[in-house]
Design a protein around this nucleic acid. Structure first.
Length: 161
DNA sequence: GCCAACGTTGGC
DNA sequence: GCCAACGTTGGC
């Protein structure tokens, strides 16, 4: 399977790219996803080595901030089993887990952020889910081309500033 | 802070 | 299995 690419959303106030950079080995597990579509992607589709665009939502402006990679494939999200956890789900049984997560490692913080407006205005990115109205999926696929374009936009932004 | 979009829940 | 009610996401 060729390397694939994904976009993962997080609210910077909750868990931002800098938090990932601060982790040992710049690696952490992506817990707390409680959406079946996103779960399926993490459980079934994300593979070690896949590229990830790290996106900050619910901030002004929303933007892509960095690049990460998948370092561990889907495994049960243990935070669903612990009633002390914010993301506890009584319906997820350790013998038959409902929720899964992956581990990602920060690869690089982009030299400049790429705001959502810029993603929307680039004709090469019109099919990106994140640019489409009402698209809330927190883990979504992107194409190799889209991934590359976003990285290039970040570099161009840095050069222009 | 608002609210549109969308996912989930639960009564029937 | 439908669908109304409700909760959440997330841009604006």
């Amino acid at each position: 399977m060729a390397k694939r690419y994904w976009l993962m959303k997080s609210e910077p106030d909750v868990y931002g790219f800098d938090d990932l950079l601060a982790e040992p080995n710049q690696t952490d597990h992506w817990d707390g996803v409680r959406n079946y579509q996103a779960r399926n992607i993490m459980r079934d589709e994300m593979k070690v080595g896949d590229g990830v665009l790290f996106y900050h939502s619910n901030t002004k402006p929303p933007h892509v901030v960095g690049v990460a990679e998948v370092v561990r494939e889907g495994y049960p999200d243990h935070t669903a089993f612990d009633s002390n956890e914010k993301y506890y789900d009584a319906k997820s049984d350790p013998d038959n887990p409902r929720w899964y997560m992956v581990d990602i490692r920060a690869v690089e913080k982009l030299p400049a952020i790429v705001p959502l407006d810029q993603l929307k205005s680039d004709e090469r990115l019109v099919d990106m889910k994140v640019t489409q109205r009402g698209q809330r999926l927190s883990v979504q696929p992107v194409t190799a081309t889209e991934f590359q374009v976003v990285v290039e936009l970040a570099k161009a932004n840095a050069d222009a500033s």
